[in-house]
Amino acid sequence: MTPRIKIIRKVSDPPVVKGFNPYGLELGNQKLEPINLFYEEYEAIRLSDYDMLNHYQASVMMGVSRPTFTRIYASALQKIAKAFVEGRQISIEGGKVYFDSDWYHCKKCGCYFNNPEKENSVINCPLCGNQQIDKFDYENNKTDTINKACYDMCICPECGFEQEHQFGQPCSTQICQKCNSFMKRKGSKNCRNFKNQ
């Protein structure tokens, strides 16, 4: 018996805060339970109302069906409305999601590896144990080896077609081979520049 692999929703990056606090609450209303906004609900709002994608495009970005996206989005709005009206805290956590992991490069053995546990930071190369590792800098590296090992992708928000991202060519100037729409970076927030430590 092999375990079934569950495909879960994809969130490109965790939110920058853990939640929101209301202020100026009337006395007596301070002890209300916080509203728990799931990561995928946060992501639905981000894609739809911050990145201004339509629901179809946003569903492609999250790797869910259009009806599923609509359901997640509706639930997100309802929770936020409840928090607004009742003056409750919002905590952003949990949900059926995973995050793209960060990638690293080992200077000694030359391997590339990801960190599947976002909570724990990486100290050693998982192959040779060397401590000289670099966070994999997606945008500033232009060498061939890194280009090949970079799994960054452009995605078409209209049809979901994906192609490998080419360095120095903004995704938004790339045209989808299938439907001729403009492409978008998959999980674009993840591709910001990292400082090497």
Partner: peptide, 18 residues
């Protein structure tokens, strides 16, 4: 890319040795 997403969601570490 698809494999990477699957392994990410399963929390299995990928080591790329070229």
């Amino acid at each position: 890319m698809k494999i990477k997403s699957l392994l990410d969601s399963l929390k299995i570490q990928m080591i790329v040795l070229k």
